[in-house]
Write a protein that binds this DNA or RNA. Structure first.
Length: 132
DNA sequence: CAGGTGACCTCTG
DNA sequence: GCAGAGGCCACCT
């Protein structure tokens, strides 16, 4: 045994990076495939995200259900088993799913960050809401 | 090694 | 809102 250079592991496991990002999606929030790819340092590789999730065997705890298409729709075809499972999991987390679609403006991961930054004094300029 | 595939994305009409 | 078209890129046949 003297020929191997032992460079088995890739310096940047794309799959590992993707799974790491997916694992960080906060419960009750969602993110798009493209967003995951970007956060994993793999711009334009949204399809790879899909493949990684697909290849991820059952038993591996990973919040794959928090990953949606860029428009907030569940990637699976409606009425299929995986579609229903994803929808159920989301609803279980308090995420509203209407017609297989999630409101990204409300549940998006980015949105969460934004919300944190907004850190609003919560006061409506317009007295639309009759406070008090 | 060429062509097909896909848990995608974006732009047009 | 729906339908097409092109682009994208790692994998699989």
């Amino acid at each position: 045994m003297s020929h191997t250079v032992v460079q088995d592991k890739l310096p940047q496991d794309p799959a590992a990076a993707i799974r790491a990002v997916v694992a960080r999606i906060p419960a009750g929030s969602v993110a798009s495939y493209g967003e995951i790819a970007q956060r994993a340092g793999l711009p334009r590789r949204a399809r790879l995200v899909g493949k990684v999730l697909r290849d991820t065997p059952d038993g591996v705890r990973l919040p794959w259900h928090r990953v949606l298409r860029s428009d907030g729709r569940i990637a699976f075809a409606p009425r299929t088993a995986p579609f229903r499972e994803q929808r159920a999991r989301l609803i279980e987390e308090g995420v509203r799913v209407l017609s297989g679609k999630v409101d990204l403006a409300r549940y998006g991961w980015d949105r969460n960050l934004d919300a944190a930054l907004w850190a609003p004094p919560v006061s409506e300029s317009s007295s639309k809401r009759s406070r008090r």
